[in-house]
Computed example of a mutant assay.
Amino acid sequence: MPTIMTHAIVPLAMAAAAGRDRISPKIAIAGAVLAVAPDADVIGFALGVDYGDPWGHRGATHSIAFAAMIAAVTAALWKEARSLFAFAFLTFAMASHGLLDTLTNGGLGAALWWPFENARIFAPVTPVRVSPIGADFFSARGLETLVSELKWIWLPCAALAVGGLLLRRQGNGG
């Protein structure tokens, strides 16, 4: 899995690219929280849920359907999230977690298609180094993970954010 900071950067970059008039700062922050939330499934380890179970780590909570369900509940409970654009943004923000996890080179894949299929999948290419957990994060392997994330996720996200900003400025005549 990528680090928690990297999961949050994807929706923040999307929000920066779209601009405040399309994605409010509150919705952007909610997107960042939802992008990190799927890893709360690790509580299952303490409850005896096996990693490979449908509700285990990288299971149902990492799926596109689960992301859409959580975005729908969020929209039902929070007036600011009730536009189609906000709903789509929040869905993609949360779904980005599982999508990023499919790009990693370790662990089980993500159950992107749950509840229709429980198979864990990886992307055809897995360039992102899987993040070590706990104190191992502060090691050479942890540094290699951060460099990998910088190259494959942070820099493309920065390009997206800057590109969106430049396009909006150009559209506003300067």
Rank of each mutant, 00 (worst) to 15 (best):
W154E: 13
D50S: 11
R129G: 00
K79M: 07
A68P: 04
A110Y: 01
D53P: 02
S96W: 00
A86S: 13
D136R: 13
R120M: 03
V128Y: 02
D39K: 05
R82N: 13
E149Q: 13
V147K: 14
T126S: 07
A68W: 08
A68D: 03
A161P: 04
A65W: 12
I70Q: 05
V36I: 15
W154A: 11
G107P: 04
P127W: 04
T104Q: 04
I29T: 15
D39S: 03
V10C: 05
G52A: 15
A110T: 06
S148A: 13
S96K: 00
P115K: 05
S139I: 10
P2V: 14
S96C: 08
W154F: 14
E80K: 13
L150A: 15
M1E: 00
V36K: 06
G19D: 03
P11V: 02
L166S: 05
W152Q: 08
K26D: 11
A65R: 05
P11D: 09
Y51D: 12
A60H: 01
H7L: 05
A76F: 13
S83T: 15
V162N: 06
P124T: 08
T126P: 02
A32M: 12
A68S: 11
G52H: 11
L108V: 02
A81M: 09
K79E: 13
Y51S: 07
T6F: 10
H97Y: 01
A76Y: 13
G173H: 02
A65C: 15
D101R: 00
P25C: 08
V162E: 09
I29H: 08
T74A: 14
A110W: 02
D50Q: 15
V42C: 08
A111N: 04
A37E: 10
I4K: 11
I23L: 07
F116M: 11
G173F: 06
I70G: 03
F87M: 12
A60R: 00
D21T: 11
R169L: 14
H57C: 01
N105T: 07
S131H: 01
F66D: 00
S63Y: 01
F66A: 08
W114K: 01
P115I: 05
A71S: 10
R169M: 14
I4P: 10
L100F: 00
T145A: 09
F138Q: 14
F92S: 09
V130P: 00
L84E: 12
L146I: 12
L165R: 10
V128H: 01
A86C: 08
G56R: 07
F137G: 12
E80Q: 11
M14K: 02
C157N: 11
L166E: 08
A119R: 12
G142Q: 11
P124E: 08
A17F: 08
T91G: 12
F116N: 06
V36P: 07
S139T: 13
N172A: 15
P11Y: 02
Y51M: 12
Q170P: 00
